[in-house]
């Protein structure tokens, strides 16, 4: 499993997957639907899947003396490593916005989503959607990724829309502030649990599918 993860990093991954981590800095853009940045992180990971198809990565992997199920697990592990690296950056930038930049004028009058624990919760929800709608279903064929990616785009854009709309609903304005932090951290905790559950179940399903697949 460790060797497969090394293979993911050294042979399978595409450079854009790493470079797109820079999109986490979108957290600082005022007046912008910053949750889109989570989509860009996933789009960066998508480049690794595309690269894998171009370089016969799947066939190379199944010919190695390794379990097919572990090959799927290694890909999920790689995806999670990138997502968690992005999450750490998002968290650091959010902490900066909530402390040092807390009183900055562009954020005080921001009609769009501000970064706070609820923003981080939505980041994890978008990541969970990617893992459940794209990464897992990709292993139905280990080749076709158009339909799963369109499914992810659709659902993640709806999520961005919902996240932007929620704090305009009377009574939910605190979702876009630094108020009621215990409630916000509870939302973050729930979304983290959702991320873990959806990713794990998607991985198990993908392992089963991949094991039965004719390549």
């Amino acid at each position: 499993m460790k060797n497969l993860l090394v293979k993911e990093i050294r042979l399978s991954s595409h450079i854009l997957t790493y470079l797109f981590l820079a999109f986490t800095a979108m957290t600082f853009i005022p007046g912008y639907p910053i949750l889109i940045s989570a989509f860009f992180i996933c789009f960066g990971i998508f480049q690794t899947f595309q690269n894998g198809r171009e370089t016969n990565d799947v066939l190379y992997t199944v010919l190695l003396p390794a379990e097919k199920r572990d090959a799927v697990k290694a890909r999920f592990a790689f995806v999670c490593v990138i997502q968690l690296a992005a999450f750490v950056l998002f968290a650091v930038f959010t902490a900066l916005r909530m402390t040092l930049l807390g009183d900055a004028a562009p954020y005080a009058e921001n009609p769009m989503m501000n970064s706070n624990p609820v923003f981080l919760a939505f980041i994890l929800i978008v990541f969970a959607e990617f893992n459940a709608l794209f990464v897992g279903p990709f292993y139905k064929t280990a080749y076709k990724f158009g339909r799963p990616f369109i499914a992810f785009i659709t659902v993640s854009m709806i999520t961005v829309g919902v996240a932007e709309a929620l704090h305009h609903i009377p009574g939910l304005g605190f979702l876009n502030t630094a108020e009621k932090l215990p409630v916000q951290f509870a939302a973050l905790f729930v979304s983290a649990a959702l991320y873990a559950a959806l990713t794990a179940s998607s991985c198990v399903k993908a392992q089963r599918r991949f094991d039965l697949l004719d390549l």
Binding site: N3, K7, R10, T55, N56, L59, Y60, L64, A66
Partner: peptide, 26 residues
């Protein structure tokens, strides 16, 4: 060992990089 006819693994990676990973498995 298996080799297909015209299959290229990682056509733009250096042989030393491909082998550097491949040997970890054997």
């Amino acid at each position: 060992g298996y080799a297909g006819g015209a299959v290229d693994w990682y056509p733009r990676k250096k042989i030393s990089d491909i082998v550097g990973v491949t040997k970890l498995f054997y």
